[in-house]
Amino acid sequence: MTGQNLHFRTRLAESIRAPGLTSIPGVFDMISARIADQIGFDALYMTGYGTTASHLGIPDAGLISYAEMLSRVTAIAGGTRTPLIADADTGFGGLLNLERTVRGYEAAGAAAIQIEDQEFPKKCGHTLGRKVIPAEDMAQKIRVAIDTRDDPELLIVARTDARTVHGLDEALRRGEVYAEAGADILFIESPESEEEMERICQSFDTPLVANIVEGGRTPVLSAPALAKLGYSAAIFPAFGFLAAGAALREAYTTLRETGSSHGGNQPLFDFSDFNRLMGFEDVWAFEAKWFQQNDKG
């Protein structure tokens, strides 16, 4: 069976701190996680939007619970070998809630935990109506997260959502506060131009992550362009579920219109390969070992 090895957090830290850009796909269920895991990325990003949508079918508006998110972290981290960055929203409440969240996510196998400075309940970072808590309250959350983690290689990603409502200057000020509080990675959410992205990268020595959402508020740039700006990593949280949604809509529309999958032009995952992806080879090996022994007995 799959699962993290003992050095997965160190591998992620080394990848983020190395020169160049680490491109990280968003995963939202075990199918997306296993496919991305096989492709060979340096890290995976468990998207809160995608997890909420796939698990509950509701908006990413602070409606999913800590227990529900923890169950997804446990499944994805336990079912893959690639270091996992896990979205923990606001920590699901105050400082005690955050302490519980860090302990739970770390025990579940996350390699990095992302927390943000929105008021609870939070909203998706590329939507309107977000409100942020005082910067010092968020800095205290970062200090609690650092004090709580048992493994110093568990990375704390500090995100600010101040740009959209309060402007870039306030977002940069908060980034400085969060870096001083000890955040390992800074996440200045939803800059609205390449010029703003350049200014962000020129403002910090702490590693920076870009959040690339197709159709969102931030320009979608190439990997070389993001690296040239100075980003250490880029997450693509929506790319997978937007692609999956488009493929499913096309496949189901064909099925509704024709009554069959016969003659469809949609690219399909080979069924035998999908069986292997889901681990059926382990089932078959188990049956071959134990059921044949019973037959002989």
Rank of each mutant, 00 (worst) to 15 (best):
D205G: 11
A33Q: 04
P25N: 09
D270E: 06
T10Q: 13
T218S: 15
D87P: 08
Y178I: 06
G167C: 07
A135H: 01
A158C: 11
G40Q: 13
K289R: 15
A67G: 11
D151L: 05
I212M: 14
R199C: 02
G93P: 13
I64A: 10
R256I: 15
L96Q: 04
R149Q: 07
P224C: 08
R217L: 13
C124H: 09
A53W: 08
F271Y: 05
V283A: 14
A171R: 07
A86D: 02
I142F: 01
A108F: 05
M1E: 06
G182L: 04
W290C: 14
P152D: 11
I115A: 09
I146S: 01
E281G: 15
V283R: 12
F271H: 08
G259H: 03
E287I: 13
P152F: 02
A13Y: 00
R17V: 13
L56Q: 06
R159H: 11
W284P: 00
G297D: 11
V213Y: 07
D147L: 01
S32E: 00
Q4V: 13
I188A: 07
P191K: 02
G216D: 04
L155Q: 14
T253K: 03
M278D: 01
G216R: 07
A111V: 05
G20Y: 03
T52Q: 04
A181L: 03
G259T: 12
G57E: 05
T254R: 02
A13C: 08
G20F: 03
M278E: 09
N211I: 13
F92C: 06
L95V: 02
G3L: 11
S32T: 02
L208H: 13
L242T: 15
F241R: 10
I16Y: 09
F286N: 08
A210T: 06
A43T: 03
Q202G: 12
T258Q: 10
F241W: 08
L168G: 09
S222A: 14
M197E: 06
D29Q: 05
G264M: 09
A77K: 02
R130Q: 10
E195L: 08
T52I: 04
M1C: 06
Q38C: 10
L268P: 15
L172H: 05
R174A: 10
E287L: 10
E14I: 08
A13M: 07
L56W: 04
A162N: 13
H7K: 14
G3E: 11
L242V: 12
H166E: 07
M69G: 10
F241N: 09
I58P: 03
R17Q: 15
I35Y: 01
T218A: 12
T127C: 06
Y49F: 15
L56V: 12
P191N: 11
D87M: 05
F8G: 01
